[in-house]
Design a protein around this nucleic acid. Sequence first.
DNA 1: CCCCCCCTGCGA
DNA 2: TCGCAGGGGGGG
Length: 324
Amino acid sequence: MPELPEVEVVRRGLAPRTVGRTIEAVEVLDSRIIRRQVGGVDRLRGALVGTRMTAVVRRGKFLWWRLADGPDAAEGAGADTGEALMGHLGMSGQLRVRTPGPMSPPLDSEGPASDPLRHRRLTLHLDDGTAIDLIDQRLFGGLWTSPLEPSADGRLAGLGSPDTLLPEAASGIARDLLDPAADLPSIARTLRTRRAGVKSLLLSQSIVSGIGNIYADEALWAARTRYDTPGTELSQRRALSILRAAGEVMERALAVGGTSFDALYVNVDGRSGYFARSLAVYGREGEPCPRCGNLLRRALHQGRSSHYCPRCQRPAPRPRRDAR
DNA sequence: CCCCCCCTGCGA
DNA sequence: TCGCAGGGGGGG
């Protein structure tokens, strides 16, 4: 579930089912899913088993649980452990909540390759019997612990965060456009200092986080700007309008559960979002532009597809030197 | 800053 | 068989 709206759907699904719960066991079915864990599976278990989840936080596409010492801790029960459980879904990751009972799916499915349960890589077992499955076909996602540190600007670390503490693993990740602490004029100014194409800049998680290939294309279409327009050629007004467009399209996607093309992209209950039908350009090469009717195109840009309308998305006009 | 890598699966 | 797929990190 890759981009910001899809990850936020997951965060909202996880919060009511995990906050306040204690982790009783960690089941690792494929250790590649925890390759970013310092100390491997032993250290992961040591850091998690017996701790209580106190919040689920998101910044961009990164998701983490805050952890406190559990009720069994002799001293300091309830105290923050100082480490977060980080999660990233990569290209094909899902976090699914499985509740005990007769209706629950079988633990190990022998179904076809398209059956997502075939790709269960790790499960957290909670004290109320709930299981949190990390399912990931391509294994680009992962779960690992990361020490907390204060956020650089002294504001709340991310959506759902109780304080300013941020996992070290997310320290290089900029704020996202759904974060009330995001400073849009400042992000716009940064975009304008860089010569690279504006789409690559929107995808740079260190400038602004949460935007991926779908929402970058949608935002640039909405702001009538072509993907290869150099950041240095954007006016402040145009840069801001691109950022606003990106925020708006992600808000609209979030409101309908995110974008799903197939069963790979689902919420914690395995259900799809409905935004795919509202996409203007992504995956629609050869179809008419919803704004001007010209046929949409797909171009390869830095190894990834860019979808755009060749007529109504133009590179920003160069500032006129002779204007006076 | 571009290119490659990490992976698996699917459709042309 | 190849190219492509909502991710990110690291190398040259």
